Amino acid sequence: MRLLECVGLTKRWGALAAVDAVDLNVDAGEVVALIGPNGAGKSTVFNLIAGALRKTAGSVTFLGEVVDELSDFDLARRGLSRTYQITSLFPKLTVLENVRLAVQARESTRLNPVPSKTLRATTKIEAEEWIERVSLTEQSWRLAGVLSHGDQRLLEIACALALKPKLLLLDEPTQGMSVEETRSTVRLLKTLLNDSKVAVLLVEHDLEVVFGVADRIVVLEQGRKIADGPPESVRADPAVQRAYLGVAHA
């Protein structure tokens, strides 16, 4: 099943084409990585899909509906969740409270200023389950703002998955992590994604992460798509080698 389809996606600022007629799709259960050198347009594509930027041309279809004019809030209600390069949490709330808010956001009574006792109990139980899945149980009482950078990234992933999205946009999930933290996060991501069956569009600079989790890789260079395929074929693509290394290896 096709979840996301972008056709001719374009974003211009004056004469600069940050994203230039990019076609991109993600199917149910698929993990697609969007990679490219710095300035290739990856984050701009994410922001166009997520409703944070208005496109210049092209279309974005999610679950068979053209969603070009929808806000990021409306997209989230339809099942598209995301994380950010700069961690976006409530720093003065605990780990548990952050995830509970994500769980409660799915409920029809989410705007009630005084949630019922039943809702408080059920959201707490589910939040604790998500916290355990990202190995933060011992940190659940701590304020999000005092967690290590790596643990904040894990908490943000837990919050995004707690929304139970159909498609998750992961923006640089291992940015700023140590080598060991990155490897641990890759192992955790593979388990979480296999268990949740959520489709993922991933932007990531670390190619070890990309080749560790992606089913398919899309490569951008200067705003244009230059490759799209399974990891091994993309790794061997001369155009991709030129983009990253400046030369094509024989």
Results as ranks from 00 to 15, higher is better:
residue 15 A to K: 14
residue 183 R to N: 13
residue 27 D to I: 02
residue 232 E to T: 08
residue 70 L to H: 12
residue 234 V to H: 00
residue 234 V to Y: 11
residue 223 G to Q: 07
residue 196 S to N: 04
residue 123 T to I: 15
residue 241 Q to M: 10
residue 16 L to H: 04
residue 238 P to Y: 03
residue 82 R to N: 01
residue 227 A to W: 06
residue 71 S to G: 04
residue 113 P to C: 01
residue 82 R to G: 11
residue 194 N to A: 15
residue 83 T to E: 01
residue 242 R to S: 07
residue 18 A to C: 01
residue 168 L to A: 03
residue 133 R to K: 13
residue 90 F to E: 05
residue 9 L to K: 02
residue 49 I to P: 03
residue 112 N to V: 05
residue 67 V to K: 09
residue 130 W to L: 10
residue 81 S to C: 11
residue 70 L to I: 10
residue 146 V to N: 12
residue 190 K to Y: 09
residue 69 E to P: 00
residue 154 L to Y: 00
residue 147 L to Y: 10
residue 28 A to F: 11
residue 65 E to S: 10
residue 216 R to W: 12
residue 34 L to Y: 02
residue 25 N to H: 14
residue 231 P to L: 07
residue 188 L to S: 12
residue 191 T to G: 06
residue 32 V to C: 09
residue 179 V to I: 14
residue 160 A to C: 09
residue 181 E to R: 04
residue 219 V to N: 04
residue 160 A to Y: 01
residue 221 E to P: 00
residue 180 E to D: 13
residue 101 L to V: 14
residue 129 E to D: 11
residue 116 S to A: 01
residue 219 V to Q: 03
residue 77 R to C: 13
residue 229 G to E: 11
residue 78 R to G: 05
residue 239 A to D: 14
residue 44 T to F: 10
residue 79 G to M: 10
residue 185 T to Q: 11
residue 89 L to P: 03
residue 175 Q to L: 14
residue 40 A to V: 02
residue 169 L to K: 01
residue 187 R to M: 12
residue 119 L to R: 15
residue 47 N to W: 06
residue 196 S to H: 08
residue 2 R to Y: 03
residue 156 E to N: 01
residue 79 G to I: 06
residue 226 I to Y: 01
residue 178 S to F: 00
residue 236 A to K: 12
residue 114 V to W: 09
residue 221 E to D: 12
residue 48 L to H: 02
residue 93 L to T: 07
residue 57 A to K: 02
residue 62 F to I: 15
residue 27 D to P: 05
residue 149 H to F: 07
residue 110 R to V: 07
residue 141 W to F: 13
residue 202 L to V: 09
residue 138 E to T: 09
residue 225 K to A: 04
residue 54 R to W: 00
residue 105 A to V: 05
residue 33 A to R: 08
residue 90 F to T: 04
residue 179 V to L: 13
residue 64 G to E: 13
residue 189 L to M: 15
residue 249 H to M: 13
residue 222 Q to M: 05
